[in-house]
Write a protein that binds this DNA or RNA. Structure first.
Length: 476
RNA sequence: GGCGCCGUCGUCUAUGGGUUAGGAUCCUGCGCUUUCAACGCGGUGAAACGGGUUCAAGUCCCGUCGGCGCUACCA
């Protein structure tokens, strides 16, 4: 069992900050969850505190080991390492029951013997009266029989209001009449989410609960549970949700929601982090920053209250930024993996080397890995090249004469480097009495068959002397 | 239905009552130029609506509209 909390007083020092990310393993790591994890991680690092991970698997029917792996995978891809051991919530059910029992003893919770029908009737009545549901057993009404099944319910406050001084949303006040006698222990004696979160957050010493604002109204109900146990509640920060490009709640039809899908689409984890952190949060000046750069600047109070939308175009540009900065060998590997995943034949050693040579140039020009793979086609193409229609037109008989002369010039080039090669091209154009516009497109057609490629000097260099000259020779 | 939260360019956002409402991205014009990009310089584009408080409101208050959440023996 975990040690009891040592943070029963809100006057903790910054060093004692404890945050947590608490996903339920019923699917993949959602990008909204990823951002929540990021915010928790950022805040803990900023404060020199701890960032904990808890798997909320109390829903036995919907929780799966595969989902746990997927979530752990996603978090590790994003390099969001948690401190300490992972807490599995279901394993702590005995402790949760113990807390429920304690509340019964304290008189802040009670056994409720309502049948499903009675409950439905109560619900209807509460609905009609515009208030939350209350149990007839809350004040000690005798059970219908000694062996009647029961749930354990929280005894909601009779009057007053509960105030959550939310770090993002400001003071949120809920009146007592709107707080229900919620179920703490089910009839099978398993704890509900509402009980488990409170007990676990308390026992784990969580000081700041940063989560999606779908939990905003739950905070008030949870505060009541803290009071029922005579525990000091943590500080809450409810982050607005992320919506799809159409402004609607994220759902299946928006496509990619899981982080592994973004990885497969060729986005870099550092780009995902940079993009996600700026959804709802702004440091004021910098637009693109790594999570390490964000640590000192991170402020919960700077998180906006309005939901934000996904914008793939913006993500693309953020990804382009990090792609151009990424390590060459890593990018090359990612491109290879992408080509393999899309079903291409494995690269020969020569092709792999050619790709590796091209990566430093190409990574500056591409937004994503698939796009880079597309731009690398010209290096990987095998002779004789297949020409597209434009290339065929460019390579007419007249031009072939000129191409032949260019080849002779190029052959004499001592250094096969893009700078002198570029100069040689200009000098050749001058000697032919034409502009580069009369040379470039045709040469490129011969060199690539029509697919896009970088600057011609670069293209020649990346192809290598032998291959470049051979491709030209193929066309004259 | 009840309760709660939200509402600045298309999008992400800055703006602690007084600004020509700033930046990024997208779109777009021009430049560079051998394609495509990249890059450089410009441009279009915003305070949901209506009241009020105030000398002064995007900023404070109220209402309307719109979006979202909770209202489960899901989390």
């Amino acid at each position: 069992m975990l040690p009891r909390a040592r943070f029963d007083h809100p006057a903790f020092s910054p060093m004692s900050v404890v945050t947590r990310f608490a996903p339920s393993p019923t699917g993949y790591l959602h990008i909204g969850g990823a951002r929540t994890a990021l915010f928790n991680w950022l805040f803990a690092r900023k404060m020199g505190g701890k960032y904990l991970l808890r798997i909320e698997d109390t829903d036995r029917a919907r929780s799966t080991p595969e989902a746990i792996d997927a979530i752990l995978d996603g978090l590790s891809w994003l390099d969001l390492q948690h401190d300490g051991e992972i807490t599995y919530q279901f394993a702590r059910a005995p402790r949760h029951r113990e807390a429920a029992e304690e509340m019964i003893t304290r008189g802040t919770a009670f056994r409720c013997y309502m049948t499903a029908e009675e409950q439905e009737a109560q619900r209807t009545q509460a609905h009609a009266e515009g208030r939350a549901i209350r149990s007839p057993y809350r004040d000690g009404k005798a059970p219908p029989s000694s062996d009647a099944p029961f749930t354990v319910r929280l005894r909601a406050p009779d009057d007053g209001e509960v105030v959550n001084a939310d770090l993002i949303q400001g003071d949120v006040r809920i009146k007592a009449r709107d707080i229900d006698d919620l179920v703490l222990l089910r009839a099978d004696s398993n704890p509900t989410y509402m009980l488990s979160v409170v007990v676990d957050d308390h026992d784990m010493g969580v000081t700041h609960v940063i989560r999606g604002d779908d939990h905003l109204t739950n905070a008030a109900r949870q505060i009541v549970i803290y009071r029922a146990m005579d525990w000091a509640p943590p500080l809450f920060a409810h982050v607005p949700l992320i919506h799809g490009e159409d402004g609607k709640k994220l759902s299946k039809r928006h496509g990619a929601q899981a982080v592994h899908e973004w990885r497969d689409m060729g986005y870099l984890p550092e780009a995902m982090n940079a993009y996600l952190m700026r959804l709802g949060w702004s440091p004021g000046h910098d637009d693109i920053l790594t999570k390490e750069e964000a640590i000192p600047q991170f402020e919960i109070g700077q998180i906006g209250k309005a939901p934000s939308r996904l914008d793939f175009k913006k993500l693309d540009s953020v990804n382009a930024h990090f792609l151009s900065l990424a390590d060459d060998a890593r990018v090359t590997r990612l491109v290879e993996e992408h080509m393999k995943a899309r079903g291409d034949a494995a690269l020969s050693d020569d092709s792999r080397a050619a790709l590796a040579r091209a990566t430093p140039v190409l990574k500056k020009r591409a937004k994503t890995i698939p796009e880079l793979a597309e731009q690398a086609r010209f290096v990987l193409a095998k002779r004789p090249l297949t020409l597209d229609d434009t290339a065929k037109k460019l390579l007419n008989d007249d031009f072939k004469q000129r191409l032949s002369r260019l080849r002779d010039t190029l052959e004499k080039e001592p250094a096969w480097d893009h700078v002198p090669l570029g100069s040689a091209l200009k000098a050749f154009a001058t000697s032919e009495g034409v502009g580069l516009g009369q040379i470039g497109p045709g040469l490129r057609a011969a060199l690539t068959g029509g697919t896009p490629s970088p600057d011609l000097g670069q293209t020649l260099e990346l192809l290598g002397r032998e291959e470049a000259l051979a491709r030209i020779a193929d066309q004259v």
